[in-house]
Design a protein around this nucleic acid. Structure first.
Lengths: 245, 245
DNA sequence: CCCACGTTTCGGCGCCGCCCGAAGCATTCC
DNA sequence: GGAATGCTTCGGGCGGCGCCGAAACGTGGG
């Protein structure tokens, strides 16, 4: 009955995440961006003092890192492992029955969002499906293997595939809102980056949601075959000033 | 700032896990076995009444399932996703700096343990390394691809490889105690099952730790090339009555 | 049928941790 | 230098949650 320390530490980490204000902050950092303490306080809807305490605890628990920049302190997730932990929690949380209350995923998040460094939500799943349908990838539980045709496709799309030739596999994650897999790992990250480069997508400032630009609608139609109407809800309607570079 | 419901539920799930007694119970169930409420109370070192409350909360949160058998109630993890969540937590918990206190992983667990349905700990990592060294698998971040030689090796070992021919890749997990990858996914499960079949390993009753049988020592030496002395600490010293079938 | 046992429900106690306002540092801007 | 800004530290209040013993419930055994 010895194994104490491991249990204790697991519980400690979970307890740190398991506080609404802290969870809100972690989710705000979920796409890997760095935010100053004040903004995180606003995300969690608590005072600066309270937020500071929470941030200290998350630092101690190894969930976040901080770097000073002038009189700001920018916090970000400590590692990709923490992002994975958050995803694992989302999967379980979204499936949990929880008697009455029905879950409502905010439509913006559900349509398209970033998951650390790759695409998720309906858009992420659609990309995965499109590649799978064109035999660019073979999807099975937890991972996807890029085919020879997939290599050419990705190269045409503008992704650097040199590393991919020797290691043609990549991870997939279960998408918590869609309950279907989307591409993660190196390939998922590369596609996400390429979409940003092409300005097909634009992350929101205040959440992990993603907008499609008009160019993105055309591009996803031309390259992946998406019905332009399918992601109409995600087409950017905000002035560019409200979006990230 | 709308996305409330998702945050709330994530925090709820994490809070349920983030309580020492509940975490202890979850870890006791971590290998997928089913245990009655009373035994879980003992694992967590709380009264039956307290344990019952905890179990109710974990049921509500969708972390565990229960089935009645006579006057016992057997609890088990609700799904593989919950097991993955626990692993994610272990990874973060084990890496977290946490000022002074140094982590002590119980040696039994560190040497060999099961992780839901596959091998972990030093033994799990050693199997992964051995396969990798013999070019049976190509390991990269988050996954491993089985080579043609690997297919033959696994077939000789007695694993059913029919499905593997068309889908030659499998997941890897970061081992929280070794900080190195071990095999998960279908291949990891198959190897674990085969080792059980051959009676090379025997799970403990009271934790996820695993013993090697004398046959296991010989077998791992013959097939995977392990130094027999390397896992001497894990060789079963208990009477068989204390081990699971 | 009654008792033994495993489990859950109830009531009440005690502590931990979340919260905020105010004060204390640090940094930048004028 | 002084004032404004961003963040942290301190002190105290309050609510919630985990804990247990006792009692209720349900099942199986004699």
């Amino acid at each position: 009955m010895a194994p104490l320390s491991e249990q204790v530490r697991l519980a400690e980490v979970a307890a740190v995440v398991g506080e609404p204000a802290r969870a809100a902050m972690l989710l705000a950092l979920g796409d890997g961006s760095a935010l100053p303490a004040g903004e995180l306080a606003a995300c969690a809807e608590v005072s600066a003092a309270t937020a500071s305490e929470h941030l200290l605890k998350m630092l101690d628990a190894g969930l976040v890192r901080v770097e000073r920049q002038g009189r700001h302190r920018y916090y970000r997730l400590a590692s990709a492992e923490v992002a994975e932990l958050l995803e694992s929690l989302m999967v379980v949380a979204h499936r949990s029955p929880e008697p009455r209350r029905q879950v409502r995923v905010p439509p913006q998040l559900r349509t398209a969002r970033s998951c650390y460094k790759h695409l998720a939500g309906r858009l992420g799943v659609a990309v995965c499906d499109a590649l799978s349908g064109r035999r660019c990838i073979e999807v099975e539980e937890g991972l996807a293997v890029v085919t020879a045709g997939g290599l050419r496709f990705l190269e045409d799309f503008g992704v650097d595939v040199t590393r991919l030739r020797s290691h043609p596999a990549t991870r997939t994650c279960i998408d918590w809102s869609e309950r279907r897999p989307h591409l993660g790992g190196a390939v998922g990250v590369a596609i996400h980056r390429r979409c940003l480069e092409l300005r097909w997508i634009r992350p929101h400032l205040d959440s992990r949601a993603i907008s499609l630009t008009p160019a993105g609608v055309r591009g996803f139609h031309a390259v992946f075959g998406f019905d332009p109407a399918r992601f109409a809800a995600a087409v950017e309607r905000l002035p560019a000033s409200l979006s990230r570079a």
